[in-house]
Design a protein around this nucleic acid. Structure first.
Lengths: 225, 225
DNA sequence: TAGATTGTTAATCGATTAACAATC
DNA sequence: TAGATTGTTAATCGATTAACAATC
């Protein structure tokens, strides 16, 4: 399929919108091969401007037809290509705690190309046991597995204190991307992509808006400074 | 302390930066009461522009002193106030699965004012048992607890199919904010704040950059369309 | 055809960055 | 004082929105 790829780099907001479209089309639009969707439909359902939708789709090379709209299947295929959902992204998951387990258990990731090829922990009580169908390996063997399986992505779900040291090891082992769920900022060489899942930002945003929407009840804690 | 509050509404990016500052100061800066930090220091450590830092701090009412910098303690206190970290945010957690458990277990949240006052599930095998020190209640009792404890925030960690129905119930029960970890978009009245933790966005961003940084290896899967 | 919808250019808006005067 | 740092205004940049011609 000779569709042209994105002309220029997509920013965070673009990627987020693309995921949104993809997700939404997959979820609610009936996908027989010929289903179409107009920019206006997509926009209204996602509470945004329809010009934005057309811009986004143009940017990833999807062309619509006037009076008809866009092919839903074509949109999804284009997003899949741009975002790499059709590829297999092999990943190691380091840290077999509760969060690690939750991620390992989430089969929805497969739809997006993520394949966890090894789960690691350094707790001798966990090594050798299984979590969500994944055998837990000794973190000491991390480099071996990364090299042997040509893994490029690492998911980090370890306590804050261990994050940076592990990131250093992962970088040395040749990892290209780190998905960090620890509450700490990592320092890595430029060639390595890091995505920091900073859960507290979500809480902060909620707390901020909650506070604003109901300025009446000032149930402050005693805050001795 | 007569510091003036933020003049106008803070956007997502602002809030994210504030959390970043807060986190960073708490993590790496020695906090005796008199520690100071310059906008340049903060900026360089977070790889951003120092004017931005000064703007952000001015916006939340923190004043620095020329030649000296800002009081780290004052920055933290101001952020705590603006973001409501000093208040107690009572929350119910619905869905005692792995992710719910991970969230319930994360004691770091207490620092930010979040207090989970009830964990709910509708699995009879789970009701009555404990998860991370929280007794699991029957989801049927959700409304009762919300009302009795004056809970304003709900954390949703249930399967996609159950999300919307639960959101409806939470809204009717008077909840003001929903922190949704399910892979689905919620429809709620305007007065309710929703924060959707869309995990796939993180994966998409990584996959996209990974793909770009190494355009050589085209290990595409056979993708029969 | 007429009406609907795309695609693109121009206008607006907001956020970031640069410049620099004020200040300790 | 001189140098460093804040605070703010102006300039730039990019992203969003509006307008509208092209098109089926």
């Amino acid at each position: 399929m000779g569709r042209s790829k994105a002309k220029r780099e997509l920013g965070h907001a673009h990627l987020e919108r693309l995921v949104h479209y993809y997700h939404f089309l997959g979820e609610r639009v009936a996908l027989d091969e010929k289903a179409t969707v107009s920019s206006r439909q997509l926009a209204s359902l996602l509470a945004m401007d329809d010009t934005q939708v057309r811009k986004d789709l143009a940017m990833i090379g999807v062309r619509g037809v006037p009076h008809v709209g866009y092919s839903a299947a074509e949109i999804m295929q284009a997003i899949r290509e741009i975002l790499g959902f059709g590829q297999v992204h092999k990943a190691v998951l380091v840290g077999a705690g509760r969060l690690g387990g939750a991620l390992a258990a989430y089969h929805g990731f497969m739809k997006y190309g993520l394949r966890i090829v090894g789960v690691f922990d350094d707790d001798p009580g966990k090594i050798g046991t299984a979590i969500e169908g994944h055998l837990i390996y000794d973190t000491a063997d991390l480099e071996k597995v990364i090299e042997r399986s040509q893994v490029r992505l690492a998911i980090l779900t370890v306590p804050a204190e261990a994050c940076q040291a592990l990131a250093d090891r992962l970088v040395r082992a040749g990892i290209s991307g780190i998905w960090n769920f620890g509450p700490t900022t990592l320092t890595v060489p430029e060639r390595v992509v890091v995505r920091h899942e900073h859960i507290v930002v979500g809480l902060a945003e909620l707390a901020y808006h909650l506070q604003r929407s109901l300025p009446g009840e000032p149930h402050h804690e005693p805050d001795p400074e």
